[in-house]
Design a protein around this nucleic acid. Structure first.
Lengths: 247, 247
DNA sequence: CCAAAAGTGTTAACAGTACACCCATGG
DNA sequence: CCATGGGTGTACTGTTAACACTTTTGG
């Protein structure tokens, strides 16, 4: 918490040398970037251009900037995740939900050397998702369906990361308002239901889902937004999520 | 996953040099070691003997062995956590529940240098907890009550780790069988209820808890064990947890 | 016999499930 | 006018919460 005064440097350097015998790994962040489109949970993959795993599909990610670790301490893990996400998708910090998942550190998970990866998952609103693939630079980038378009094997241990991400959002769906990060700013009941169905992988009774939704409205979690959605047959009421306590 | 063949070494060394400009942090594991005794959630703390934070209470933990990261890849994060736990408590791997919590990597969380800490939480059965403080070496080690014995501030960001651990087990308590890792191998309904009460921090209706317990018995999650517990007034039936699928 | 914990039973409230049915609209 | 998704209502079920009550022990 308190940075070292300049006169303690020799002291700290002594520490550092002693600790160095444990070795220091490279540290990366890897991102499971998810969205829901056409009632289907989609994952962002990038094609690796260089070995290891050249040509294979992988999660976006990269090395955490640590600096010299002494005068230059580098960036936080959250900053690294946001930076990689912005580099890969062009999306700003406040347009995505980003949460840490799990840290993977098997000694042989990267053939080059010892690499510890802090995995995150990101939720992208479907109205922003198209910009991701359009705006990205040279590298090959694709949204794939998690359910039935998944490549045989992703690079490194990225399959495990994806599994962990899907498991996490399934678990959180009923206890945290993460579904609202997967719909446009204003949305219909059916659109929110489609998100739930895509994540859980099973159909919901429209009527029962509606009642649960009504409870959310009673509790002030969502509120009516002006206008109607006239995309389908009968126009549907649109709602917006009421962000709590500065989000 | 595949270790590099010997003739690719120069190739890999080139990679390594290129990646090194990101810098490499030290990586530690920190452990929130928890148990329940006297209907109270308890946390294991060690007194720091050397700076930084000399004299302050901290979580047990230490550096992950990474080796040179190349020929010697070092230990996995799980192995590092188990090793630190064994060093600090003397408890073998199979006597504790250990799960990864979160990874903390704020650039200034350690005044010496950039350190990234993978935090874990461990659950210790109350019948084994007394051996921990007894068997530990020179260092000062103590169980403190999480609720009302917590020091003003722990070293580093360890307060946040404790908060995260408590939040995690509160959340998992109703959806995963973690309570059984906080009772002796055979236990009474009241003992299991005491664990729930200690974690949630609120009293449970004994009768309603009993019904939930009965359901567990019907589902084969727990089963009657021979004997009775004659510690209190009226002897209580003892049960055991039925471990599923190789635990 | 009395205090206290073990253990049983009853009831009301509520959330989840399944399903029948009306409403509004674009084709 | 009809197929389709929006929207309402209802009956059934299982779980939870609150609480009254009996049983068994140690002191």
């Amino acid at each position: 918490m308190k940075p070292p005064p300049d006169d303690e440097r020799a002291f700290l350097e002594g520490y550092r040398a002693r600790i160095d015998r444990f070795g220091r790994p490279s540290v990366t962040v890897d991102l499971a970037v998810l969205t829901v489109q056409d009632s289907d949970l989609k994952l962002l993959l990038v094609r690796r251009e260089r070995p290891p795993y050249a040509g294979a599909w992988a999660l976006p990610g990269g090395f955490v900037r640590v600096g010299d670790g002494f005068d230059d301490r580098g960036e936080s893990l959250l900053d690294a995740a946001h930076r990689e996400l912005a580099e890969e998708t062009g999306l700003p910090r406040d347009a995505v939900f980003l949460e840490q998942l799990y840290t993977f550190g098997a000694p042989d998970r990267d053939p080059r050397m010892r690499v510890i990866s802090v995995a995150w998952y990101a939720l992208i609103r479907p109205d922003l998702a198209p910009f991701v693939t359009a705006g990205s630079d040279a590298a090959e980038v694709r949204w794939i369906s998690v359910g039935h378009e998944r490549p045989a094997a992703l690079a490194f241990d990225h399959d495990r990361i994806v599994d962990a991400a899907v498991e996490r959002i399934r678990g959180k769906l009923d206890s945290a308002p993460i579904a609202f990060d997967l719909v446009p700013p204003t949305f219909t009941v059916a659109e929110l239901r489609a998100v739930h169905e895509a994540i859980k992988g099973e159909p919901y009774d429209a009527s029962n889902f509606r009642r649960r939704f009504k409870r959310l409205e009673d509790d002030g979690v969502v509120e009516r937004a002006p206008g109607k959605r006239r995309t389908s047959r009968r126009p549907a009421a649109v709602y917006r999520f009421v962000r709590r306590g500065g989000g």
